[in-house]
Nucleic acid binder design. Structure first.
Length: 420
RNA sequence: GGAGAGGUGGCCGAGCGGCUGAAGGCGCUCCCCUGCUAAGGGAGUAUGGGCUUAUCCCCCAUCGAGGGUUCGAAUCCCUCCCUCUCCGCCA
């Protein structure tokens, strides 16, 4: 949610900033609703004031032993008026809130304008795609021993996978390795979180109300399955006022993620690139507003460190305004090289949401010189998507015989095994 | 799931339906006193919104959440949520 004051004072500027990410803000509707809100609110408050004053007078009169009956007459008409005004105000507020909740974050000025991923800009590359003197296989072929889509389909349908034996072990090793790296070397606090959360929590990070169709719900309960640990991790500070010395906070969690993938029918149907359920190690920062862009760079290097330790070639791109997520002001994607596809594919997305989520969550901090609170800034990034990391390891470390070398960094988690 | 108890400010804790946004205490901040320490004295100390260029003032809202009764609700009624105790079930 954007700063409501912006909507009042700089509505047109806000609209043009949003136009950079191709969001069409209904300026007239907002202006109208805002004017109504203002009138109604002033009216409601004036009426309440009158009621309070008179009620208090009645109380005093009664205490003084006066006859209170003549005072009760005209106050009831006031009550009806107030009720009507309150109802009007409620409706206007609801409509205004509903609109505001569907407005995405403002892009940072450094974000390249563009409608699609075609306008993303490469920031840097690390490593070089491996050269093979044979036709590289993709992960589905390479995993044919322990990566079983048929069994998963029998259990749950399409877009699920079952891993067996060393493949399942490798999956666990990757998650374990990432978690340890972030905790031991990058200063994160490890967190275990719920995987089912209230709609309010989803609203805090921006998944709701707009993206209900992307989420899985639980029948008979008012709960949703998390599409990313960003949701529970970021909402840790929901409705809290933090002291200056509590910041920055850095959380890491390994969780499954559940996505309906509505709207991506036919895309990435082969293999385990795009699943309804996948594991991810997620990084979240809660920081002082002045620090958030430094934090974004830091967070991104933390995610990159995982790829570097795994010796996986990748590149970093800045997402264009049109390719960014709803809550993000600026996003770096990490794209890992996949020999099976001969292209870079997203394996991490690191975003600064500035105060967008904090406002929705009512997460604030108190500045060091006291006086007043303001929203914190929140950031999140994958460090990394575990399933995709598994794919990347299989495809990048294959040899002509179809064996897969295990990168050194993972061997301690694989009982020292050198290959798969 | 059943029975009971309870949810009040950063914390503890009081609160006959009427100056109670809320006593008192602790904590914290500032000031005074003090050779130092300890103790003591005084003042201040919620959040959101409206008004305002801004501050102060003033106004509105908030005592788990949402409804209701009433001129008036932290106080009465209803529903829901959460916590605790006991029972049941269970990894």
């Amino acid at each position: 949610m954007l700063d409501p004051n912006r909507f009042r004072r700089e509505l047109d500027e806000t609209a043009s900033a949003l136009a950079r990410r191709f969001f069409d803000l209904d300026v007239d509707a907002i202006r109208r609703l805002e004017a109504d809100r203002r009138d109604l609110q002033t009216r409601v408050e004036a009426l309440r004031n009158q009621r309070n004053v008179r009620s208090r007078a009645i109380g005093k009169a009664k205490a003084a032993g006066e006859d209170v009956r003549p005072r009760l007459g005209d106050i009831s008409r006031l009550g009806e008026e107030l009720e009507a005004a309150e109802q009007g105000l409620g409706e206007v507020r609801d409509r205004l809130d509903a609109m505001l909740l569907e407005v995405p974050n403002l892009p940072h000025p450094s974000v390249p304008a563009g409608r699609t991923e075609a306008e993303n800009l490469e920031v840097r590359q690390w490593g070089a795609p491996p050269r093979f003197d044979f036709e590289p296989r993709d992960h589905v072929e390479l995993g044919s021993g322990g990566m079983d889509f048929d069994t998963a389909a029998r259990l749950s349908g399409s877009r699920f996978v079952t891993l067996f034996g060393p493949m399942a072990r490798l999956h666990r090793a990757l998650a374990q390795f990432m978690l340890d790296l972030h905790v031991r070397e990058h200063g994160y606090l490890e967190v275990y979180t719920p995987y089912l959360v209230h709609p309010k929590t989803m609203q805090g990070t921006g998944q709701l109300p707009k993206f209900e169709q992307d989420l899985f719900s639980v029948a008979g309960h008012d709960l949703r399955l998390i599409p990313t640990a960003e949701v529970p991790l970021t909402n840790i500070v929901r409705e809290r006022i933090l002291d200056a010395d509590e910041l920055p906070m850095k959380f890491v969690a390994h969780t499954p993620c559940f996505r309906s993938e509505a709207g991506s029918h036919g895309r990435d149907t082969r293999g385990m690139l795009r699943q309804h359920q996948f594991d991810k190690v997620e990084l979240v920062h809660v920081v002082r507003p002045d620090d958030s862009y430094d934090a974004l760079e830091e967070l991104t290097t933390h995610a990159e460190a995982v790829l570097q330790r795994l010796e996986l070639p990748y590149r970093v791109v800045v997402l264009s305004t049109g390719d960014m997520g709803f809550a993000a002001a600026k996003t770096y994607d990490l794209e890992v090289w996949l020999p099976g596809q001969q292209r870079y594919r997203e394996i991490s997305s690191c975003s600064n949401c500035e105060s967008f989520q904090a406002r929705r969550m009512r997460a604030r901090w108190r500045g060091p010189q006291g006086r007043g609170t303001e929203p914190v800034h929140t950031l999140n990034g994958s460090g990394l998507a575990v399933g995709r990391a598994l794919i990347a390891v299989l495809e990048n470390f294959q040899d002509a015989s179809g064996r897969v070398r295990i990168p050194d960094a993972l061997r301690p988690f694989m009982d020292g095994a050198e290959s798969l």
